[in-house]
């Protein structure tokens, strides 16, 4: 018996390390497949050879080259958004010890969306760079309000309280948004398209103007992954391990806010990606955020790009925006998590 225990103890670190290597390779492979899929699959089929030629000769002027340039920009933006949302969700779940962390559930998407509309309506904001400023302010406002209100009381910020306060905040933000867009049909027309998360709206220029936020956000969240590990042990424990809990939590919150704001500015609100990726990675990697955080950057785009592809082929010739397909895919997963997990403290 002791021999068996011994062998388990010895093999565990080795096995875990090789397993992590395997997951890393797997995520990278899936990532490549998703990028290829996103480039080749759509309402108009293109064979790989033509696609490759069109991709490398974007100025040929053929219909294929236009199509492929379009798909390429969608794919690039999808990669960024997927990485950003997954990292934001993982950091949120870690730092609040809340398995239901997601920008949509916690009201951050609605806060960002609301402020963007306020920006459009009051000072005529336009372009992703300007949107991003408003979106980050809205995301920060939402994060601070929702988290601090849910923290009041003896039990602290439980997952259910966070989710409920997030939903209430969303409802309030939505009626302010409505008050803005009901002022004119033009605003309504622009906004009703904008409020659906989509990868085909932004250009490379938009992406560049938001990129600094993305980079800082990724550094602040992924770079502090080992602190997130300590947070998982509880604030007291983290403190005794030498963490400056309040400061680190604030810095990670800033990172999450920048990521969410950037994502909303580029693609509009997208739900549930931030929720599901960390859960999937935790299931195969264990609860180590030093692995979960960086791998979420690769795993997020996989799901998001496939969701986008599904949206292209589901109802041809029209396309369904990725914000809609993500919700259709994400809600069953969310409900599955709630039904199976005891840890949600149900």
């Amino acid at each position: 018996m002791s021999a068996a225990a011994e062998s388990v103890r010895q093999s565990t670190p080795v096995r875990r390390r090789s397993r992590r290597g395997l997951v890393l390779v797997g995520v990278l492979a899936l990532f490549v497949v998703a990028v290829i899929g996103s480039l080749l699959i759509g309402s108009k089929p293109v064979d790989p050879v033509t696609a490759g030629r069109a991709l490398f000769h974007p100025d040929a002027g053929s219909s294929e080259s236009v199509l492929m340039a379009n798909r390429l920009s969608r794919t690039v933006i999808g990669i960024v958004i997927g990485a950003v949302l997954a990292a934001a969700g993982a950091a949120m779940q870690g730092v609040t010890r809340n398995p239901l962390g997601d920008p949509a559930i916690l009201g951050i998407n609605s806060g960002a969306t609301c402020l963007v509309v306020v920006g459009i309506a009051t000072v005529g904001a336009s372009g992703a760079g300007t949107y991003a400023v408003w979106a980050v302010i809205g995301a920060a406002l939402a994060a601070v309000l929702v988290y601090s209100i849910a923290s009041i009381g003896r039990s602290g910020a439980t997952p259910v309280k966070l989710a409920l306060v997030g939903a209430a905040f969303s409802a309030g933000a939505m009626s302010i948004t409505n008050a803005m867009i009901l002022q004119g049909q033009d605003t309504l027309d622009e906004f009703r398209h904008w409020q659906i998360g989509s990868l085909s709206r932004s250009t490379y220029g938009d992406l560049l103007s938001v990129l600094p936020l993305v980079v800082i956000g990724v550094v602040l969240t992924v770079g502090l992954a080992s602190s997130i590990n300590n947070f998982a042990l509880g604030d007291d424990m983290a403190q005794s391990l030498g963490e400056k809990v309040a400061l680190k939590r604030f810095v990670i919150f800033v990172g999450i806010t920048l990521l969410c704001g950037a994502a909303v500015a580029l693609a509009g609100p997208i739900a549930f990606l931030g929720l599901m990726i960390p859960h999937a990675l935790r299931a195969v990697l264990g609860p180590d955020y030093r692995w979960i955080m960086p791998l979420s950057l690769g795993a997020g785009p996989v799901i998001l790009l496939w969701a986008d592809v599904v949206g292209r082929v589901l109802l041809p010739p029209t396309e369904i925006e990725v914000g809609v397909t993500m919700a259709i895919v994400g809600v069953p997963i969310f409900i599955y998590l709630i039904r199976t997990r005891k840890a949600v403290n149900l």
Binding site: L164, V324, A327, V331
Partner: peptide
């Protein structure tokens, strides 16, 4: 219990997405 509440919140997000679409 909370399961009822949380499932309601999930359904709500889906409904919003479909409504907007």
């Amino acid at each position: 219990g909370n399961r009822f509440i949380l499932i309601g919140l999930g359904i709500s997000v889906l409904a919003v997405a479909l409504t907007n679409y």
